[in-house]
Design a protein around this nucleic acid. Structure first.
Lengths: 225, 225
DNA sequence: GTGGACATTGGTAAAACACCCCATAGCGAA
DNA sequence: TTCGCTATGGGGTGTTTTACCAATGTCCAC
């Protein structure tokens, strides 16, 4: 029997290792790789060609949704399950639009996760357990897995989203350029473009926007002060 | 040999079950209970009397820090390790003030977690890996497990909170100075002080912190990506 | 094939920020 | 009273951001 190959993309090491332990106890599942950030996830999928990717949304360098788009662009047959701590409709909708075929809450059990992996492997779509109205009301072409990025009229290009995330994570242009492997002027260009598109001029505003848009997360709520 | 009894307090089920799998593979560790929220953690500690509690900060009903205080009030001998995704000094300090004897990042490995459990069981304090200057420079009575409220010396002053809020709202130093009716150098001074206290250097990080601390809210816009 | 969107890079310049140094005054605690 | 914290100010230096300008090449859609 050929086992289902799985790649784990989750930035918290102890959590990722725990997920691996769970999957290792299933005879039909095989963890072939782990990624601690979204960019590495894309690289490893190209290299390892796993059947299924379990992808956390919140990851440094490249968030799970953007990583999903890039993975599907490179290897469209990959089945991607988004793992999220949040149950907002917007997250689910973004996940479907990114091309993921599964959405799993961290509140779900390990049994749910294993089952979801088997389901997407069989070609099914697994979104739940929660209301998934977005999947049926409105445009299905969001689910287009053919490859091309959707006509996200609204706005930011894929590259601009990447830069936005890196800015909101506190990286300077120089660091972003190094991370993306491009020149600093390129990064500046993307920054200018997205600032003009969003009509937000300043790091603080961009950071708040990124958090509100779910591109990154803020810190946990604590009333420290 | 008597095994070290551990209680897991973490609201994300799949994550919690993964942590359990990790600990189950250690001969000297025994998971005696799991809690999905802080309040249940307190209840279970009273009932099960575990030696060590691995406690997530972000949990429903009762956050990990408040749960820690209540646990130690009821069973002072309990060794509590705070599990956090965030590395801000403020979180570490809050953890120490709550009475926890360990602080572990989720970025840590499963090996780190097991070792931390063994260390606190031996009566040691485990905070790392990161700079924990607050533990040594300044008052050690932070570690006081008796329960008394500590004088809040490392907290931001009210002026610094004002400046932090204005920064996170996107104001430049000049605007902040005008708003507060002080000189620009004064604002710069406050900015430097609070950055050093929080060990956060940069507008993006400060903004994320301010949102996480509830000082400001992120503009919740949806489905933009 | 042509136009348009996108990604890429270059120049220039002003403004803002980050990180040091320092001082004064008030105010409360040891 | 002395010490420490806080708030207020100042000087200087180097880096980073922001905002303009311009250009090239790719790729897709019409």
């Amino acid at each position: 029997m050929r086992r289902i190959t799985v790649l784990l993309a989750e930035d918290h090491t102890v959590v990722r290792e725990g997920l691996r332990k769970i999957l290792e106890q299933e005879d039909d599942l095989e963890v072939v790789g782990e990624a601690g950030n979204g960019r590495r996830a894309v690289t490893l999928v190209k290299k390892l060609r796993p059947t299924v990717v379990v992808m956390d949304i919140s990851m440094p360098l490249l968030n799970g949704l953007e990583a999903t788009r890039q993975v599907l662009k490179a290897v469209p047959s990959t089945k991607i399950i988004i793992l999220s701590a949040h149950n907002d409709d917007a997250y689910v909708k973004n996940a479907t639009e990114s091309g993921a075929v599964g959405f799993l809450l961290k509140q779900a059990s390990s049994y749910d996760m294993c089952r979801a992996i088997r389901e997407v492997n069989r070609g099914r779509v697994v979104f739940g357990p929660f209301k998934a109205k977005f999947l049926y009301e409105g445009e299905q072409e969001s689910l287009d897995r053919a490859g091309r990025t959707k006509p996200r009229n609204s706005h930011l290009t894929s590259r601009e989203v990447e830069v936005l995330q890196l800015i909101a994570e506190g990286n300077a242009n120089k660091q972003i350029a190094a991370e993306l492997g491009v020149g600093m002027k390129t990064v500046e260009g993307h920054r200018e473009h997205l600032m003009e598109k969003l009509n937000i001029h300043g790091i603080a505003g961009l950071t708040r926007y990124a958090i509100g848009a779910g591109i990154i997360e803020s810190s946990v709520q604590l009333t420290i002060i």
